[in-house]
Amino acid sequence: MKILFDGRPIRTPLSGVARYCANLSHHLSLIARQENRAQIEVFCQDWKSRNTELQTIIANNDASFRCQDQINPKLANILFEFFPSYAKHFHNKKFDIIHETYFANLGKKTKEKKVVTIHDVIPLDCPEYFNQKNSFFSKRNFYRQVKEADHIICVSEYTKLKVIEYSDYQGPISVIPCGVESPTAPTSESQAKTKDEKRTIDILCLGNIEPRKNIVALASAVAILNKKSPDFRLIVAGYGNYRAAEIISESREILGDNLNYLGPISDTEKWRLLRNVDLFVFPSLYEGFGIPVIESYRAKCAPIFSNCSSLTELAVDERQLFDPRSPIDIAQTIDRFTHDAALKAQTIEKAQANLPKYSWPEIAQNVYNIYQALIDN
């Protein structure tokens, strides 16, 4: 069987969906080679060789890549969207299965089976978190995909419920979570600090800087804690996205020097931070899955996070959850976890038993089984 896999999200900077595409396509190709029954071709875009992240991923990926480099990717996506029959001029092959990995059209469906991964339905549930153009195209593609899909993959039970709520889709839906890469090997700089070296309680938040990530509420919570004991420092890392400058400016007004915004960081630096901070806090108002929470578990850093959307599925102890719209509740949860070493240790220990289901080989096998079932039927 021949599978066309949409890898267009793989671009600079790497998003969670981009990592999903890169890791899943790689492990699917390893299975296909072992089974000797399938060919995985990843369709991506690299106009004028500007997609630096893509080149690195291709060099370390077992999949076959077909890069659209003839025209500007934005123009190509418009052609795919409004003239889907034209899309096949770019990949120019016949496939048994097309796998769309985000809200975008990979070509008009004819005889192929179509698998669709839906990460979230934020554009339908909370369109205010997007600009009008992105919201329009995402909604348009959601309704097209649920109409065309032969099988839908959702990354959480919450997303599955939302797909059912917003559509009349009657076909099969599987819940297959996102995976998390293994932490990079620690260096001498990434060893945990001793108690004597620690002068502050470091709180870490990772993710794109945008309104739904709720950074200002977290800054307010840390400010509440510092009124009682001025030992807390908030470390924020991630790419600036929608209204990022405004969010960081407001957070800095609240915390002053107790806010350390690092901007985008490397994977090595991400894992170093997770190993060294006192607590990971994820106050997002809406997630389709919650990759940073699983990364925190894998780094053996206790996470606390919002009691909404898909995030509740990731908790191993209800005491990890807080109301993201209440800085007081966030502050109380931070205070509890930073001063209760036994609770942190128990949380980390419980989480380790769940980590195998977030391994890419297992996730890829589950997706491959869907491909195989569609062909067999």
Score class of each variant (00 low, 15 high):
residue 35 E to Q: 14
residue 54 L to Q: 08
residue 57 I to S: 07
residue 339 H to G: 10
residue 192 A to Q: 13
residue 172 P to F: 00
residue 228 K to F: 11
residue 375 I to P: 06
residue 301 C to I: 03
residue 121 V to A: 12
residue 24 L to Y: 02
residue 99 H to L: 06
residue 53 E to K: 09
residue 171 G to R: 02
residue 42 V to F: 09
residue 127 P to D: 09
residue 178 C to S: 07
residue 275 R to D: 08
residue 110 T to N: 14
residue 187 T to R: 12
residue 46 D to W: 06
residue 146 V to N: 06
residue 335 D to Q: 13
residue 311 L to W: 03
residue 177 P to Y: 04
residue 181 E to T: 13
residue 307 N to F: 00
residue 175 V to P: 04
residue 332 Q to H: 12
residue 213 K to W: 04
residue 370 I to R: 01
residue 100 E to V: 02
residue 26 H to M: 05
residue 110 T to G: 04
residue 329 D to V: 02
residue 152 I to M: 01
residue 334 I to N: 13
residue 207 G to K: 06
residue 61 N to R: 09
residue 98 I to V: 14
residue 209 I to H: 01
residue 101 T to N: 11
residue 110 T to M: 09
residue 66 R to Q: 10
residue 197 E to G: 07
residue 185 A to C: 08
residue 184 T to I: 12
residue 67 C to W: 07
residue 355 L to E: 13
residue 329 D to Q: 09
residue 292 P to G: 12
residue 72 N to V: 09
residue 3 I to S: 04
residue 4 L to Q: 05
residue 25 S to C: 08
residue 197 E to H: 10
residue 346 Q to A: 14
residue 218 L to A: 03
residue 91 H to N: 12
residue 322 F to S: 07
residue 277 V to E: 06
residue 17 V to W: 00
residue 346 Q to E: 13
residue 39 Q to N: 11
residue 273 L to I: 10
residue 363 I to K: 03
residue 47 W to P: 00
residue 262 L to M: 14
residue 73 P to K: 11
residue 231 D to A: 13
residue 172 P to T: 10
residue 244 A to H: 14
residue 105 N to W: 00
residue 182 S to D: 12
residue 107 G to F: 05
residue 310 S to I: 02
residue 324 P to F: 03
residue 330 I to C: 12
residue 49 S to T: 09
residue 60 N to E: 13
residue 347 T to L: 08
residue 162 K to V: 10
residue 150 D to A: 08
residue 263 G to P: 13
residue 48 K to W: 09
residue 55 Q to G: 08
